[in-house]
């Protein structure tokens, strides 16, 4: 394998990592804070992707053509808000009743994911739709012959970096973030000290869903989107959480980088199906050494 191909595979892996990171972060915080495994999380990615599609259709229909290039800057917040809102609704009407019943949340959210996929199929049709990426994202930086870094993947990398820095500042530099971390560490104690835990839960769940929405908006730059778009990422995102550990942003970052880059490398060296087998085996081997994942919250709890 020539170094150009190697670098471009690493680069593709990085952009996959950044998507997994956005999806995995939401999973990790909702699991860390509420013990809820949200299998409908992939569908929030799909919702984000369709939001981008709707925004673009709106721009094409009602606004002049020279504004079309800027649709993406509208689509990003729109995706975030729509996904976060639906996440908020889901939390209020379903998840709230299932705290601490982790297995049951898997089944219930799985049902929700079936419903949301079918809803998307009925609204947008079973076929995939295309979101044409803005013209200024076409092409890329040519570094040498045979090595070009596409703008859209660079852009994805930038967006997810901004989101992560934003999340970090939010969690570690604001009062609200501190409250969320407190609930994550010890729910009962925080409640005793006057933290409105149910409000924190709803807010965190909406936040995680919104992040998945942004991921969906970003995914729409890479290819066509369909009702099952979310399913392509959800299992990998869960593996990110298992590998990285629950409850720390840095764990999710490390997990996403490891899985994104290694799957894109191994899938290139071998075949796409063998690559998946290798990555999975490597994860199992790694867990032999650190069963809790790369980074974990230190507690004195038994489990």
């Amino acid at each position: 394998m020539s170094p150009e191909i190697f670098i471009s595979q690493i680069f593709n892996g990085l952009s996959l990592s950044s998507i997994l990171l956005l999806v995995g972060l939401g999973l990790s915080i909702t699991f860390g804070i509420m013990g809820v495994i949200n299998f409908a999380h992939g569908e929030f990615l799909m919702i984000g992707a369709y939001s981008a599609f709707i925004t673009q259709s709106f721009f094409i229909k009602y606004l002049s053509a020279d504004l079309l290039g800027f649709y993406f800057f509208v689509a990003l917040p729109v995706s975030f808000i729509i996904a976060a809102f639906i996440g908020f609704i889901l939390e209020k009407f379903l998840i709230r009743f299932l705290y601490g019943r982790t297995y049951e949340t898997i089944l219930a959210t799985w049902g929700v994911s079936l419903i949301l996929q079918q809803l998307a199929r009925n609204i947008f049709g079973a076929n995939n739709v295309d979101v044409s990426s803005p013209t200024w994202l076409r092409g890329g930086i040519t570094i040498s012959e045979g090595l070009q870094l596409p703008y859209n993947r660079l852009f994805i990398l930038a967006i997810s970096t901004i989101c992560i820095i934003g999340m970090y500042c939010f969690f570690y530099r604001t009062a609200k973030g501190r409250v969320i971390r407190a609930v994550m560490q010890n729910r009962t104690m925080s409640a005793c000290l006057g933290v409105p835990t149910s409000k924190v839960d709803a807010f965190t769940f909406a936040l995680g869903s919104g992040l998945a929405g942004i991921a969906g908006c970003v995914v729409s730059l890479l290819g066509s989107i369909g009702p099952s778009t979310g399913q392509n990422y959800i299992i990998d995102a869960f593996m990110v959480v298992v590998l990285g550990g629950v409850g720390k942003i840095v764990g999710t970052i490390a997990g996403a980088l490891a899985i994104g880059i290694s799957s894109s490398l191994f899938e290139f060296i071998t075949t796409s199906s063998m690559g998946k087998v290798i990555v999975f085996s490597l994860i199992i081997v790694f867990l032999q050494w650190k069963p809790q994942g790369m980074f974990t919250l230190k507690t004195r709890k038994l489990d």
């Binding site: 299932l98 019943r101 089944l107 049902g111």
Partner: peptide
């Protein structure tokens, strides 16, 4: 999908 949700709930 509803069956999943209702049974659990």
């Amino acid at each position: 999908g509803l069956l999943f949700v209702l049974v659990v709930l």
